[in-house]
Computed example of a mutant assay.
Amino acid sequence: MYAMQFTAQSSSNGMVERDFAVGGVPGVLWSPPSGAGRAPLVLMGHGGGNHKKSPAMSGRALRLVAEGGFHVAVIDAPGHGDRPRTAHDEREIAELYRARAAGEPEGPIVVRYNAHLAERAVPEWRATLDALQTLPEIGEAGPVGYFGLNMGTAIGVPLTATDPRITAAVFGLHWPDALADPARRITVPIEFAMQWDDEHIPRASALALFDAFGSQHKTLHVNSGRHKELPRFEADSAVRFFVRHLGRASTPPA
């Protein structure tokens, strides 16, 4: 097991932010103020081209910490944030930009590249979760959720399918091509978001991925709008989802 190394700490907006590294993979852990009791953990996966502290990640973390009392952890995906790109990363990104400039479908490239990233990221996430659960404020027995859209779904679906510690998950905005098989192995509660007018992911594709999940407790959230127009209130819904399925922070002993 890799040890967790904390490299920086700060506090703002009523939550504590700690930078860390596990096996050389950089991450950030947002937590309630010190002195709070043991709390559930939510792992978050960032989108493609972003990083662990992108506005979407810090904004969702603030909601999860403030409204649910959760700990929230994000790591940089391979080739993102503070992690260097490989030659394979550079080729795939160049091909994506070429297709975009030519007006060609991006989906086949994104699906292929995200599947490659997931193969690398899932073991890193499992090692990170091992390390996080050694912290007394999280613990080995505490409930764990996962929240990731776009590339965060591409990584989170195979992660959730293979790690029984994750007991609830929020996914969305992805194609089913590489994810339908692992989705069928997921039986924990699921909330799934899609955009009805998504210019990249056809409605039938998004619905096919939702339908593939093996869970008996899954909810589909459909909003009008294009791929990047997912309403902000879906983040609030995710908080309520995790409160229902993970509980809240416990009260510290007197």
Rank of each mutant, 00 (worst) to 15 (best):
V144N: 10
P202I: 02
L173T: 00
S10Q: 12
R63D: 08
A73G: 06
F241G: 02
M4D: 00
R240D: 12
D177A: 06
P189S: 04
G23M: 06
G225T: 13
M194L: 15
G14R: 06
P123T: 07
Y2L: 00
A208W: 00
V16D: 09
A212C: 08
T7P: 15
R248E: 11
R63V: 03
V25S: 11
L173N: 00
V25P: 03
G156C: 03
V111K: 10
K218I: 07
A77Y: 06
H227M: 05
P136C: 02
E104G: 03
A118P: 09
F147I: 02
G35E: 00
A66Q: 15
K218E: 03
G48K: 09
F20N: 09
F147S: 15
P33Q: 10
G14W: 02
A118E: 01
V170D: 13
P108I: 02
E90A: 14
H46Y: 03
A77K: 02
E140T: 12
H217S: 13
A141M: 14
A168H: 11
A73R: 04
V157F: 07
A169S: 15
S54F: 09
A36P: 09
P105K: 01
G37F: 06
G23V: 11
R244G: 02
D181Q: 14
G172E: 01
H46A: 07
R232P: 14
Y113N: 04
G14Q: 04
G79A: 01
Q195K: 01
E124F: 07
A183Y: 05
I75P: 04
T162H: 09
A249N: 02
R18W: 04
M4F: 08
W175I: 00
Y146A: 10
Y97C: 00
V144M: 09
R226N: 15
F233D: 12
W125Y: 15
A77R: 05
V170G: 11
N114R: 07
S224L: 14
Q133E: 14
V16Q: 12
I75A: 03
S250G: 15
F192H: 07
G37T: 06
G214V: 00
M57Q: 14
E17V: 05
L29E: 12
E137F: 13
